[in-house]
Protein backbone atom coordinates (compact mmCIF):
# COMPACT_ATOMS: atom_id res chain seq x y z
CA UNK A 1 0.00 0.00 0.00
CA UNK A 2 1.35 3.38 -1.02
CA UNK A 3 -0.31 5.27 1.79
CA UNK A 4 1.10 2.94 4.43
CA UNK A 5 4.64 3.53 3.25
CA UNK A 6 4.25 7.29 3.23
CA UNK A 7 2.91 7.17 6.78
CA UNK A 8 5.78 4.99 7.95
CA UNK A 9 8.38 7.24 6.38
CA UNK A 10 6.76 10.25 8.08
CA UNK A 11 6.79 8.49 11.42
CA UNK A 12 10.39 7.44 10.96
CA UNK A 13 11.37 11.07 10.27
CA UNK A 14 9.52 12.38 13.31
CA UNK A 15 11.00 9.75 15.57
CA UNK A 16 14.45 10.38 14.20
CA UNK A 17 13.93 14.06 14.98
CA UNK A 18 12.77 13.29 18.51
CA UNK A 19 15.41 10.71 19.32
CA UNK A 20 18.42 12.18 17.59
CA UNK A 21 19.32 14.55 20.45
CA UNK A 22 18.74 11.80 23.00
CA UNK A 23 20.83 9.18 21.23
CA UNK A 24 23.56 11.70 20.49
CA UNK A 25 23.66 12.79 24.14
CA UNK A 26 23.93 9.21 25.35
CA UNK A 27 26.63 8.40 22.77
CA UNK A 28 28.52 11.56 23.63
CA UNK A 29 28.46 10.64 27.31
CA UNK A 30 30.41 7.45 26.65
CA UNK A 31 32.70 8.84 23.92
CA UNK A 32 36.41 9.36 24.48
CA UNK A 33 36.78 11.71 21.54
CA UNK A 34 34.10 12.71 19.12
CA UNK A 35 34.47 15.71 16.92
CA UNK A 36 34.90 15.11 13.22
CA UNK A 37 33.67 11.53 12.80
CA UNK A 38 30.17 10.20 12.35
CA UNK A 39 30.49 7.94 15.40
CA UNK A 40 32.70 8.39 18.48
CA UNK A 41 36.34 7.36 18.12
CA UNK A 42 36.33 5.35 21.34
CA UNK A 43 34.14 4.56 24.32
CA UNK A 44 34.58 5.06 28.05
CA UNK A 45 32.53 5.19 31.23
CA UNK A 46 34.95 7.53 32.94
CA UNK A 47 32.56 10.50 32.85
CA UNK A 48 29.97 8.57 34.76
CA UNK A 49 32.63 7.46 37.23
CA UNK A 50 33.72 11.05 37.75
CA UNK A 51 30.15 12.18 38.06
CA UNK A 52 29.15 9.63 40.65
CA UNK A 53 32.37 10.18 42.57
CA UNK A 54 31.59 13.87 42.89
CA UNK A 55 30.14 14.69 46.29
CA UNK A 56 28.59 17.84 44.90
CA UNK A 57 26.59 15.74 42.47
CA UNK A 58 25.55 13.30 45.17
CA UNK A 59 24.37 16.10 47.44
CA UNK A 60 22.42 17.77 44.66
CA UNK A 61 20.81 14.46 43.79
CA UNK A 62 19.90 13.79 47.40
CA UNK A 63 18.42 17.26 47.80
CA UNK A 64 16.23 16.69 44.75
CA UNK A 65 15.21 13.28 46.06
CA UNK A 66 14.32 14.71 49.47
CA UNK A 67 12.33 17.63 48.09
CA UNK A 68 10.52 15.48 45.52
CA UNK A 69 9.62 12.67 47.88
CA UNK A 70 8.55 15.01 50.64
CA UNK A 71 6.29 16.83 48.19
CA UNK A 72 4.83 13.66 46.73
CA UNK A 73 4.08 12.08 50.10
CA UNK A 74 2.58 15.32 51.32
CA UNK A 75 0.45 15.59 48.19
CA UNK A 76 -0.80 12.04 48.51
CA UNK A 77 -1.72 12.60 52.15
CA UNK A 78 -3.51 15.83 51.33
CA UNK A 79 -5.25 14.79 48.12
CA UNK A 80 -6.23 11.13 48.40
CA UNK A 81 -8.43 11.28 51.51
CA UNK A 82 -10.09 14.57 50.68
CA UNK A 83 -10.71 13.69 47.03
CA UNK A 84 -12.21 10.40 48.19
CA UNK A 85 -14.46 12.19 50.63
CA UNK A 86 -15.42 14.74 47.99
CA UNK A 87 -16.44 12.04 45.52
CA UNK A 88 -18.37 9.94 48.02
CA UNK A 89 -19.81 12.42 50.49
CA UNK A 90 -19.50 15.95 49.11
CA UNK A 91 -19.87 15.84 45.33
CA UNK A 92 -19.99 19.62 45.17
CA UNK A 93 -16.49 19.93 46.57
CA UNK A 94 -15.15 18.17 43.51
CA UNK A 95 -15.50 21.50 41.72
CA UNK A 96 -12.97 22.90 44.16
CA UNK A 97 -10.41 20.35 43.08
CA UNK A 98 -11.08 21.16 39.46
CA UNK A 99 -10.42 24.86 40.06
CA UNK A 100 -7.28 24.17 42.09
CA UNK A 101 -5.93 21.88 39.40
CA UNK A 102 -6.64 24.23 36.49
CA UNK A 103 -5.21 27.36 38.14
CA UNK A 104 -1.55 26.26 37.74
CA UNK A 105 -2.04 26.42 33.96
CA UNK A 106 -2.54 30.17 34.28
CA UNK A 107 0.46 30.57 36.57
CA UNK A 108 3.50 28.74 35.25
CA UNK A 109 6.70 28.50 37.31
CA UNK A 110 7.89 32.04 36.72
CA UNK A 111 4.65 33.63 37.88
CA UNK A 112 4.23 31.30 40.84
CA UNK A 113 7.84 31.94 41.86
CA UNK A 114 7.70 35.73 41.82
CA UNK A 115 4.46 35.63 43.78
CA UNK A 116 5.96 33.39 46.40
CA UNK A 117 9.25 35.29 46.65
CA UNK A 118 7.41 38.51 47.37
CA UNK A 119 5.08 36.91 49.87
CA UNK A 120 7.56 34.86 51.83
CA UNK A 121 10.59 37.14 51.85
CA UNK A 122 9.05 39.21 54.59
CA UNK A 123 6.13 39.03 56.96
CA UNK A 124 5.42 36.31 59.47
CA UNK A 125 6.38 33.33 57.33
CA UNK A 126 9.92 33.92 56.04
CA UNK A 127 10.60 30.68 54.23
CA UNK A 128 12.08 32.08 51.03
CA UNK A 129 15.43 30.44 50.24
CA UNK A 130 14.58 27.39 52.38
CA UNK A 131 13.53 23.95 51.16
CA UNK A 132 10.08 24.58 52.65
CA UNK A 133 9.12 27.14 50.05
CA UNK A 134 10.33 24.73 47.38
CA UNK A 135 8.12 21.97 48.72
CA UNK A 136 5.18 24.35 48.81
CA UNK A 137 5.70 25.37 45.19
CA UNK A 138 6.29 21.78 44.09
CA UNK A 139 2.97 20.89 45.68
CA UNK A 140 1.25 23.34 43.33
CA UNK A 141 3.33 22.22 40.36
CA UNK A 142 2.29 18.55 40.60
CA UNK A 143 -1.26 19.21 41.78
CA UNK A 144 -2.82 18.86 38.29
CA UNK A 145 -1.03 15.56 37.56
CA UNK A 146 -1.81 14.16 40.99
CA UNK A 147 -5.43 15.19 40.83
CA UNK A 148 -5.99 13.74 37.35
CA UNK A 149 -4.29 10.42 38.04
CA UNK A 150 -5.91 9.89 41.42
CA UNK A 151 -9.33 10.93 40.16
CA UNK A 152 -9.04 8.46 37.30
CA UNK A 153 -8.15 5.60 39.60
CA UNK A 154 -11.08 6.42 41.86
CA UNK A 155 -13.29 6.47 38.81
CA UNK A 156 -12.13 3.10 37.48
CA UNK A 157 -12.91 1.31 40.74
CA UNK A 158 -16.30 3.00 40.97
CA UNK A 159 -15.45 4.24 44.41
CA UNK A 160 -18.91 5.33 45.48
CA UNK A 161 -20.59 1.99 44.90
CA UNK A 162 -17.67 0.22 46.48
CA UNK A 163 -17.98 2.35 49.60
CA UNK A 164 -21.70 1.82 49.82
CA UNK A 165 -21.24 -1.93 49.46
CA UNK A 166 -18.56 -2.00 52.16
CA UNK A 167 -20.68 0.08 54.53
CA UNK A 168 -23.65 -2.18 53.95
CA UNK A 169 -21.52 -5.14 54.91
CA UNK A 170 -20.90 -3.46 58.23
CA UNK A 171 -17.46 -1.98 57.59
CA UNK A 172 -16.69 1.25 59.48
CA UNK A 173 -16.06 4.41 57.45
CA UNK A 174 -12.37 4.65 58.30
CA UNK A 175 -11.93 0.92 57.94
CA UNK A 176 -13.61 1.09 54.53
CA UNK A 177 -11.16 3.72 53.36
CA UNK A 178 -8.05 2.01 54.70
CA UNK A 179 -8.90 -1.61 53.97
CA UNK A 180 -11.08 -1.42 50.87
CA UNK A 181 -10.52 1.81 48.99
CA UNK A 182 -6.84 2.58 49.47
CA UNK A 183 -5.47 -0.83 48.38
CA UNK A 184 -7.60 -0.55 45.27
CA UNK A 185 -6.28 2.84 44.22
CA UNK A 186 -2.69 2.20 45.30
CA UNK A 187 -1.62 1.46 41.75
CA UNK A 188 -3.10 4.71 40.50
CA UNK A 189 -1.44 6.61 43.34
CA UNK A 190 1.91 5.02 42.49
CA UNK A 191 1.66 5.99 38.85
CA UNK A 192 0.69 9.53 39.88
CA UNK A 193 3.80 9.55 42.07
CA UNK A 194 5.99 8.32 39.23
CA UNK A 195 4.74 11.00 36.85
CA UNK A 196 5.40 13.58 39.55
CA UNK A 197 8.93 12.29 40.11
CA UNK A 198 9.78 12.79 36.45
CA UNK A 199 8.27 16.26 36.50
CA UNK A 200 10.11 17.27 39.68
CA UNK A 201 13.47 15.83 38.63
CA UNK A 202 13.28 18.02 35.55
CA UNK A 203 12.18 21.13 37.45
CA UNK A 204 14.45 24.17 37.17
CA UNK A 205 12.43 27.40 37.28
CA UNK A 206 11.10 27.20 40.83
CA UNK A 207 14.35 25.90 42.27
CA UNK A 208 16.39 28.55 40.51
CA UNK A 209 14.18 31.46 41.50
CA UNK A 210 13.04 30.38 44.96
CA UNK A 211 16.10 28.77 46.54
CA UNK A 212 18.96 29.01 44.06
CA UNK A 213 22.31 28.29 45.68
CA UNK A 214 20.77 27.79 49.10
CA UNK A 215 19.34 24.43 48.12
CA UNK A 216 21.11 23.31 45.00
CA UNK A 217 18.94 20.73 43.22
CA UNK A 218 20.13 18.45 40.47
CA UNK A 219 18.91 20.79 37.71
CA UNK A 220 20.70 23.78 39.22
CA UNK A 221 23.81 21.66 39.58
CA UNK A 222 23.51 20.71 35.92
CA UNK A 223 23.09 24.32 34.89
CA UNK A 224 26.29 25.27 36.70
CA UNK A 225 28.20 22.18 35.63
CA UNK A 226 27.44 22.91 31.99
CA UNK A 227 29.50 26.07 32.21
CA UNK A 228 32.44 24.30 33.86
CA UNK A 229 32.69 20.84 32.35
CA UNK A 230 30.69 20.05 29.23
CA UNK A 231 31.50 16.40 29.17
CA UNK A 232 30.43 15.78 32.77
CA UNK A 233 27.26 17.80 32.25
CA UNK A 234 26.53 15.73 29.20
CA UNK A 235 26.91 12.53 31.20
CA UNK A 236 24.45 13.94 33.70
CA UNK A 237 21.92 14.73 30.96
CA UNK A 238 22.30 11.20 29.59
CA UNK A 239 21.87 9.71 33.08
CA UNK A 240 18.82 11.90 33.60
CA UNK A 241 17.29 10.64 30.41
CA UNK A 242 18.03 7.02 31.27
CA UNK A 243 16.23 7.53 34.59
CA UNK A 244 13.24 8.97 32.73
CA UNK A 245 13.32 5.99 30.40
CA UNK A 246 13.33 3.62 33.34
CA UNK A 247 10.44 5.47 34.90
CA UNK A 248 8.37 5.35 31.71
CA UNK A 249 8.94 1.62 31.48
CA UNK A 250 7.81 1.29 35.08
CA UNK A 251 4.67 3.27 34.27
CA UNK A 252 3.91 1.11 31.24
CA UNK A 253 4.43 -1.99 33.30
CA UNK A 254 2.04 -0.65 35.95
CA UNK A 255 -0.58 0.22 33.36
CA UNK A 256 -0.17 -3.17 31.74
CA UNK A 257 -0.58 -4.96 35.08
CA UNK A 258 -3.74 -3.01 35.79
CA UNK A 259 -5.20 -3.96 32.45
CA UNK A 260 -4.38 -7.63 32.88
CA UNK A 261 -5.84 -7.49 36.33
CA UNK A 262 -9.05 -6.03 34.96
CA UNK A 263 -9.56 -8.68 32.30
CA UNK A 264 -9.24 -11.42 34.89
CA UNK A 265 -11.87 -9.94 37.18
Amino acid sequence: MKKGILAKVTLALIFAYLFFPIVATILFSVATRWSTTILPEGYTLSYYQQLFASSEFMHALLRTVYASFATIILSILLIVPSLYLAIVYYPRLEKLFEILSILPFAMPGVILAIGMIQMYSRGPLRIANTPWILIGSYFVLILPFMYQAIKNSFRTINVKTLTEAALMLGCGKLETFIKVIFPNVLRGVISAALISVSVLFGEFVLANLLVGDNYETIQIYLYKLQKVDGHLANALVAAYFLVILFMSLLLIWLAFRTRKHKTIV
Binding site: L18, F19, P21, I22, A24, T25, F28, S198, V199, G202, E203, F204, Q219, L222, Y223, Q226, G230, A233, N234, V237, Y240, F241, I244, S248
Partner: peptide, 15 residues
Protein backbone atom coordinates in the same frame (compact mmCIF):
# COMPACT_ATOMS: atom_id res chain seq x y z
CA UNK B 1 10.44 12.32 24.97
CA UNK B 2 7.91 14.84 26.30
CA UNK B 3 9.93 14.78 29.53
CA UNK B 4 12.96 16.02 27.67
CA UNK B 5 12.76 19.77 28.12
CA UNK B 6 14.26 22.59 30.11
CA UNK B 7 17.94 22.72 30.95
CA UNK B 8 18.85 19.18 29.80
CA UNK B 9 17.24 19.82 26.43
CA UNK B 10 18.96 23.16 25.95
CA UNK B 11 22.20 21.51 26.85
CA UNK B 12 21.71 18.61 24.44
CA UNK B 13 21.11 21.14 21.69
CA UNK B 14 24.23 23.09 22.66
CA UNK B 15 26.25 19.89 22.40
Amino acid sequence: TSNFSGVPLAFAYIV
